[in-house]
Design a protein around this nucleic acid. Structure first.
Lengths: 237, 237
DNA sequence: AAAGTTCAGTGACTTTAGTCATGTATTTTA
DNA sequence: TAAAATACATGACTAAAGTCACTGAACTTT
């Protein structure tokens, strides 16, 4: 689907530090490195569609991938954003089921594809890796429980404030109380993260701007007052 | 906290068939059986609170447990209901973090408690068990993605219809198109499952009754028209 | 069996957020 | 660079669901 580029071996991959492959045994790392496929993806391209069968695991080297579900009303609910070091599509592979989500590129990305058999072989043989993966899964489960609770119990205003803070954690530059979100999301995508209508996001963002919580410079969002957003994102603001 | 009763050994436990211990190696089963603690719990009793540290894993032998989060508005979001054969509290244990949820008894239950060290030892030594657990976790992740999407993209009416259908799957008797939900939940608890206000559940239930989708006999709910509920639970009903 | 407590149900009202319509920027593409 | 396509923005309206207040029913407790 995309142009294969000369591959960096996993042993030398700088994104590996951030991934679950970070302390994989040398031999397993080589197995993966030899069989993987390095591909460059442009914004908008698709990694996989919901309900298709996984053929392997994607490992993000750079760029941003959105993992989402298409609801029965046609809207996209973004489950998470994956960046450098993140694995994509492994839960469906391990769960031995069709993909429960779709994945597309949000910001131009380079991504490695590790074939099913190789990934599962390493998972089966490297107990330490398996242990780490299970632990990460369990922690992700806690994250999902939080998201579900926020989705049902918080207002859209609260959820948007929270979403901005989390984007700040993942993609913020400058740090401190004032940080620029270094990620290009459309208002519709932000709506997909929060789980609301695009117009509502637009309205609330200008409201936040009026309240000096954020600033809008073209496409980019600057968080001016993280504490204020945090107060707003919790029920009693 | 509760009255310990004479323990059924795991080898003879009838609920085990339904659990992830179902094909545990004999030796590991014995290790667990020897160290576990069988306890009887009454409705309303607490298994654990959010933010406390897990000391082991609960294995439900009979009865029903609700796993929930208390939101910042004080309401309970029920994450799932656990029954015979289900493990409770293992994700936080394996994730090496404090409980992300609380758990209390919804229907009088008998539950085994397996201490942390023993459970983790078996997990580390029995690769087959570890594999099965990871697989289940991955599938549960897909379930959570679905729940999140439903929570943000479906209306309360749709979500309630869906919740009733799922309760039918897990606790329905008679089967077919007409089934009685054999579980005693208050309207407030149903609201906690759906993620809405108690009054809204009450109103919608009487509406469903008026529309011959369900019947209300005292506390018990009877699903009269599963297909109708299914149609309603999907966006285009 | 009386009193207390929890639970179910209803009405009135308010707030929130979704939808539709339309207009203006801003990118893309031809 | 003009045209087309997206994306952003705003207003008006509607519908959905939450809150508050209260009543009556059904359990518990003593």
């Amino acid at each position: 689907m995309s142009n294969p580029v000369k591959s960096t071996p996993c042993e030398l991959c700088l994104s590996r530090k951030f991934s679950m492959f970070s302390d994989l045994a040398e031999e397993h790392l080589c197995t993966i490195s030899d069989s993987k496929n390095f591909i460059s993806h442009k914004k908008g391209q698709i990694l996989y569609y919901e309900n298709t069968k996984p053929l392997g695991v994607f490992c993000v080297n750079s760029g941003v991938v959105k993992i989402f579900k298409t609801a029965s009303n046609g809207k996209e609910q973004i489950i998470r954003l994956a960046k450098k070091g993140d694995f994509v599509g492994y839960t469906s592979l391990i769960g031995e089921e069709a993909y429960t989500t779709s994945a597309t590129i949000v910001e131009d990305a380079s991504i490695c594809f590790v074939p099913k058999e190789v990934f599962l072989k390493v998972l089966a043989e490297d107990n330490n890796f398996h242990r780490r993966l299970t632990q990460a899964l369990c922690q992700d489960m806690g994250v999902m429980e939080n998201k579900l609770t926020d989705a049902t119990q918080k207002s859209i205003r609260e959820r948007l404030a929270l979403a901005l803070l989390k984007l700040g954690d993942g993609y913020g530059v400058d740090g401190g109380d004032k940080q620029r979100l270094d990620i290009a999301l459309t208002r519709e995508e932000i709506a997909g993260i929060v789980g609301t209508a695009t117009e509502t996001v637009i309205r609330l963002l200008s409201e936040f701007k009026k309240d000096k919580l954020i600033d809008l410079q073209g496409k980019k969002i600057i968080l001016l007052d993280r504490k204020g957003l945090a107060r707003l994102s919790d029920f009693y603001g």
